[in-house]
Amino acid sequence: MEKLYSIKDVAEHFDLPISTIRYYDKKGLLPFVSKNQAGYRVFSKSDFGFIQTICCLKNTGMPIEKIRDYIQLCMQGTSTIKQRKYLLQEHKQNVLDQQRILNESLKEINTKLDRYSSDDAFNIISTQIKYVETEKRTLNLHDPFLTK
């Protein structure tokens, strides 16, 4: 006999607040979820795959509306495979762009951390401050390091 899962079971499995699952349902992301005779949501094991995908798309920045579009395409069956593929390819490119930006930002953070961890950190930072002060003075601009 197949097992049914409560919203609490699903929340624990995916480490989500129950309110998030209810919100997803309200936004139309869970059309595959059934309700029991008492009106409570009940989940089957196959629902977990959809929820995993929803979490993946949400975690990678896809807007709720686009996730809903994707789920609606899934509910229409095999006739929407090309549309789903296109939607996911577009999202993949967005994720890759975000990943590139994060990698560039991480390099900058690591550069700063290396500088601050250096035995010569005081001299390096002092030299940078002197450069900025000289540049601002030469350009007749406010010195941001002046304290009042």
Rank of each mutant, 00 (worst) to 15 (best):
E2C: 09
E2G: 09
K3C: 08
L4H: 01
Y5E: 12
K8V: 11
V10T: 12
A11M: 03
D15N: 15
L16G: 06
L16V: 09
L16K: 01
P17Y: 04
P17V: 01
T20S: 10
I21M: 11
R22V: 12
R22L: 14
Y23W: 07
Y24G: 02
K26S: 14
K26T: 13
K26P: 00
K27T: 00
P31N: 06
P31F: 01
F32P: 10
F32K: 13
S34M: 07
S34D: 08
N36D: 15
Q37A: 15
Q37L: 13
A38S: 14
Y40L: 09
R41W: 03
R41K: 14
V42D: 01
V42E: 06
K45M: 12
S46A: 10
S46L: 07
D47S: 14
F48C: 05
F48A: 06
G49A: 07
G49H: 04
F50A: 07
F50Q: 11
Q52W: 03
Q52C: 05
Q52G: 08
T53G: 08
I54C: 00
I54K: 04
I54T: 02
I54H: 01
C55A: 10
C56D: 03
C56S: 05
C56Q: 03
N59E: 14
N59R: 07
T60F: 02
T60A: 03
G61Y: 04
I64Q: 01
R68M: 11
R68S: 14
I71V: 13
I71E: 02
Q72Y: 03
C74P: 04
M75W: 03
G77V: 05
T78L: 12
S79W: 01
S79Q: 12
S79G: 06
S79K: 05
I81R: 03
K85A: 09
K85W: 06
Y86V: 14
K92A: 09
Q93C: 04
Q93M: 11
Q93S: 06
L96F: 01
D97M: 09
Q98L: 04
R100I: 13
I101P: 02
I101R: 12
L102C: 05
N103C: 12
E104K: 10
S105P: 00
L106F: 04
N110C: 07
N110L: 13
K112V: 13
R115V: 05
R115Q: 08
Y116S: 01
S118V: 06
D119K: 14
A121N: 02
F122S: 10
F122G: 03
I124S: 10
I124T: 11
I125P: 00
I125N: 05
I125M: 06
S126L: 14
T127H: 07
T127C: 06
Q128N: 07
K130G: 10
Y131N: 12
Y131C: 03
E133C: 03
T134C: 10
E135K: 14
E135D: 13
R137D: 12
T138R: 14
T138Q: 14
L141D: 11
L141Q: 15
D143V: 06
D143R: 06
F145M: 03
T147N: 04
